[in-house]
Design a protein around this nucleic acid. Structure first.
Lengths: 216, 216
DNA sequence: GCGTAATCGATACGAACGTATCGATTGACT
DNA sequence: AGTCAATCGATACGTTCGTATCGATTACGC
């Protein structure tokens, strides 16, 4: 009756899904009908077993000696991630990072569409970025509620983060993609995801620092 | 003789270090001399035990009933991550994301300084972004070698990534912060760190998708 | 038509991380 | 000065993820 997820899927698997998607689309363009887990693993520097396990989570069954059907697999992953029906999002904080995200046109491939941008700076309000008019934050709650926006992208300075989030929540937002270094407080019905550049940099500089010490 | 890392530190701990640093600096500004692991944990929504374990990795010892000395701890974490001596970096690919990173002035707090920017687009070469002149990629290798650049920040389109990286490696780069979705091939002396926006979005949309299903 | 080889799928093992528990230490209050 | 309570530090447990091994399946070649 329920052929889908027998058990909850972990974050590591989810993180790799976009990688598979990318490779599979490349293979599809080249006319490949089937993709074996071994080949995909080689292209991504992954363990073949991990690939098979991850792809199994989509429910698609592979044929021995051939691999997984590329077309079905692409659709299954997109469906799995919820990337087939586009999700409407608002972005708050049209600084340099916010601008970069608005201009990025790859989001539509990920089922994401930024339908409105907000900022507190009166000098920015009314201007256009990538065809979108910047609105004042005072209208945030109303727009979120009226358009039934599901996702809020947060690219404001740290000290403004919580206040903006409160407005989003008041409008009935479902999830928040947080690019600030702040831990936000929201009702547990709202799903949070923090994107931490400093964390990545910390790992990198630690490794570099260690490597420098050893060769010294 | 060697009071430092008794055993290798894992990624999860490293990722949390910037969080501690941020909170501790706030507390320092407020005049706190000591910070207990419990308080820090509360401010970050973390388990107190995790905080103590992480902070123990820095080598700083805490006093019972008081906590950890804030000043020493900040210096220890910065030293631990290699954020005390600034690291020189080059950025390649002055698109919207690259521009955002160049303009971001918080990197100096993380011991990072972008000393040069590169692009292939002749229309961009020669222009200035945040005070830095954009140079042609043909000069990349030479600049990296001459200035002894340690870190390369990669914000180019996917199909140009590997070629640029080869130029960096030829110049003797030590590490690469990769913002493209491509798996790069480098000698194992070069440290790679990939920053994957799609991965974060995948987790978020999966969760949203699941939540939407259940309430349906 | 049959053997071969390669892939999938399931099960079992090991390492790393998060969580829980315990004793030791020490500042604070009476 | 003595008692109390809170925190640190170390040890032990459980879960999750990555890795390894095994059998089942099936396309390809002879």
């Amino acid at each position: 009756m329920e052929p889908l997820p027998p058990r909850p899927t972990g974050d590591p698997t989810l993180k790799r899904m976009p990688l598979y998607l990318r490779i599979l689309k490349e293979m599809q363009e080249q006319g490949c009908a089937y993709a074996s887990g071994v080949v995909v693993a080689q292209l991504l520097d992954l363990d073949p077993i991990v690939v098979r396990k991850d792809l199994a989570a989509t429910g698609v069954i592979g044929k021995p000696r051939l691999g997984f059907p590329v077309g079905s697999l692409i659709m299954a992953i997109e469906e799995f991630l919820g990337w087939r029906n586009t999700m409407d999002a608002v972005l708050v904080g049209v600084g340099s990072l916010g601008t970069a995200l608005i201009k990025y046109d790859g989001f539509k491939q990920h089922g994401l569409q930024i339908v409105a941008a907000f900022d507190t700076d009166r000098r920015k309000v009314g201007k256009r970025v990538a065809g979108k008019v910047i609105l004042p934050v005072s209208e945030l709650t109303g727009v979120v509620r009226k358009l039934g926006i599901q996702l809020g992208i947060l690219t404001v300075p740290a000290d403004a983060a919580q206040a903006v989030v409160d407005q989003m929540v008041k409008g009935g937002i479902k999830g928040i993609w947080n690019f600030t270094p702040v831990r936000l407080h929201v009702p547990d019905t709202v799903i949070l995801k923090r994107e931490d550049l400093a964390a990545g940099l910390a790992i990198l500089s630690y490794r570099l620092h260690q490597a420098g010490k050893k060769t010294k």
